[in-house]
Design a protein around this nucleic acid. Sequence first.
DNA 1: CTGAAAGCGCTTACAG
DNA 2: CTGAAAGCGCTTACAG
Lengths: 333, 333
Amino acid sequence: MRVTIADVARNAAVSKTTVSRVLNGKGEVDAETADRVRAVIAKLGYVPSSRAVGLARGSNRTLAMLVPSLTWPWVGEVLQGVADTVEAAGYGLLLFTCNRGEDSMAQFTSQVSARAFDGVLVIEPENTLRSMAALHRQGLPLVMVDDRGQRPDFPSVATTNAEGAAAAAAHLLDSGRRAPLIITGPRHFGCVQDRLTGFVGVLRERGVAQPAARVAAGDFTVRCGQTVIERALTEGIPFDSVFAHNDLSATGALHALRAAGRRVPDDVAVIGFDDIPIAAYTEPPLTTVRQPMRAMGEAAARRMIEHLGGVTPLQAAPTVLPTEFVIRSSAPG
Amino acid sequence: MRVTIADVARNAAVSKTTVSRVLNGKGEVDAETADRVRAVIAKLGYVPSSRAVGLARGSNRTLAMLVPSLTWPWVGEVLQGVADTVEAAGYGLLLFTCNRGEDSMAQFTSQVSARAFDGVLVIEPENTLRSMAALHRQGLPLVMVDDRGQRPDFPSVATTNAEGAAAAAAHLLDSGRRAPLIITGPRHFGCVQDRLTGFVGVLRERGVAQPAARVAAGDFTVRCGQTVIERALTEGIPFDSVFAHNDLSATGALHALRAAGRRVPDDVAVIGFDDIPIAAYTEPPLTTVRQPMRAMGEAAARRMIEHLGGVTPLQAAPTVLPTEFVIRSSAPG
DNA sequence: CTGAAAGCGCTTACAG
DNA sequence: CTGAAAGCGCTTACAG
């Protein structure tokens, strides 16, 4: 059968208490006794049952990560940052996605009640901010990787959306563009508002107007990027550049422009947002506002782990990591 | 404090045993008693502690998923299929990546000993087949999503690599190409051998030779696709088409061809493998051999869950899901 | 149909 | 420095 702490105790001729002490390094144990116990542990290949430890301690060094979907490049990058940090700290990572909507959330909430994990890192699934906040109020340690610019009143990690968009605007103006077409993300996202404000703000400062006709509502998909460009072309809306609120829609824009015979960047310059891995390999490679996705995941995990370690109380103030402007051929300098 | 089964029992004026019975639907319970217990459970908002249940039952309805990296599109798709299936079955999903090499594997193995999960689904991290096999022999329920064509002697889910590659070859020949350049994946992967055999087999059948000079070793990265094409062009190796062993390297090939002024598909037709989401948005869109990634993840999860449910013994025979040939403009019909 | 008691495998006061 | 015992919150024979 399975080797238990009792087996180790018996073999080492000590009590389970002593074994537990050398296991956890708590309390004084005679050096020789400890060595003997360690030898037995090695010989028997003993590993404490995580279930038993969890029950006894009331915590199991496990974090949950809740994400809307796993097939978005952005999410994969953040998740990798989280996984690296969590694993390095010796924590487990329980993954939850929300593909089944209400059902999924109910299941997740019930796992919270079941105390299946010590804390949760979340990339907010659509319309769950309220339930997240509720869970947080009920005492669940929570850190949000805020891709929506929600500025929730619980801990979060975000990026400088307005500044990043401002850099994009300045770059376009500096290279002589005067009529950018903006493809936004979903309008109710805070990050979309921020990117809009940051971008248009620079234009206004420099005396360039941004008519509403050149601000098109997208939804962060490749498809929407195509559609917006096709429509603008059909309607004859004049534009000499595109600022898409993410790289996926920028990719769609590149496609539609090419299909319509517009050259990038000669006729139209294109800038995206995120710098997902494929951004360097679109045709032409995409100038974009890099979000430090990996680092955001790492920061979220680190805050949570430090909190659980008792070092740092979890404060609501967001950790804001800076964007970085990446120039490639779709909008050269 | 936390509501426990004892609280429910007291409030419903029954024993913990009875509460447990209505919770798990095992054993006969008087209908009225059961209703009363359920009412109390609802009123108190009681949810059983997963830690306690796990310890008592010796299993916690949790699966582990071990992956090499989370930032490859292929992995994201498979993982989504796994997550959907696992969640729908009410299981938890513990995620492990292997970014820290040996250390990671040691940690994973120790989690196995700790009985932190009931079974594991794995996309094999480099060079771990041996340890996986060992864990499986020691009784760990294991299903591998076999992207390497390893044909291990434990349960796995794979795809028809040879047939898929054969379809690609037939398509190129049918459209008049006679000199394909092959960009392989790592040579020691079984899937690479299979794709090579399947592809070259069709060529041979139709009397077309495939000289070694037109078989270049790649490593599944975008970069390798670029490098191979650049080198072939420099060395003056003649080719009228490219068969890349995955979409990422095909993307690199498209890039290098364009940079060199070769038109796709007019001068060179390009076919990839996988059909990751961006394949439809490369320039031009990529003709490719689709792997049913989502379905592979789902199948792996389903086999594991059925096994754990006691329905099906886990057999070594691989589940093989068919590839599908997807024609887009990089190699039209 | 129902309950008392043992057991799952640890940790942690408490006592010495 | 060390150990006996209680406790974590469930499930499961066993007995009635």
